[in-house]
């Protein structure tokens, strides 16, 4: 099949650009560790309140400036509703759902993940600036979806 010379140039440039995108994303992910949240740990969604660590949602200090935040998502809120950490802290968020699918997004950061019942999802973030960060549910979950929020207070 014959391709016009200009079309060859156009497609070559286009394909090389796309290849560059994929290579950058690949290096970023597999060499630098910037993977999207893809935890594969399972949990019975009907027994979240009895399953450690989600039976006691909350913040736990695991090192200097490092915290584990174990959180549950449910209609229509998160537990705990407020987390307080000092500036410069790295927080590992571990979230599961007690009912339907929810979203977990911390506005102003790259923390953004799906919270699917039956599974745990995880994401980490280092808070370098003080502020009151809004955590919101970004997946429609029912009549009170627009009220589902929590906060990370960074002091």
């Amino acid at each position: 099949m014959h391709l016009h010379r200009y079309e060859k140039i156009w497609l070559t440039v286009g394909i090389l650009t796309l290849a560059a995108f994929v290579i950058v994303a690949g290096i970023n992910a597999f060499a630098m560790g910037a993977m999207p949240p893809s935890d594969r740990q399972m949990i019975d969604p009907t027994k979240v309140d009895q399953t450690p660590p989600f039976n006691q949602p909350g913040l736990k200090k695991i090192g200097p400036n490092e915290y584990d935040a174990t959180m549950t998502a449910f209609v229509f809120g998160f537990a705990p509703a407020t987390i307080e950490v000092p500036v410069g802290s790295t927080v590992h968020f571990r979230v599961t759902s007690k009912d339907v699918v929810h979203g977990f997004q911390i506005v102003g950061t790259n923390v953004n993940m799906m919270v699917v019942p039956g599974l745990v999802n995880t994401a980490s973030h280092t808070f370098t600036k003080p502020g009151n960060y809004l955590i919101l549910c970004n997946e429609y979950c029912g009549a009170g979806h627009q009220l589902m929020a929590a906060h990370v207070v960074v002091k």
Binding site: A25, G26, A29, F30, M35, P36, P37, S38, D39, R40, Q41, M42, N112, M113, M114, V115, V116, G118, L119, V120, N121
Partner: peptide, 14 residues
């Protein structure tokens, strides 16, 4: 469409 989903390995997503 499921890049942020748990339960799917990052390699398959990629």
């Amino acid at each position: 469409h499921q890049l942020m989903d748990p339960g799917i390995s990052p390699e398959w997503k990629f």
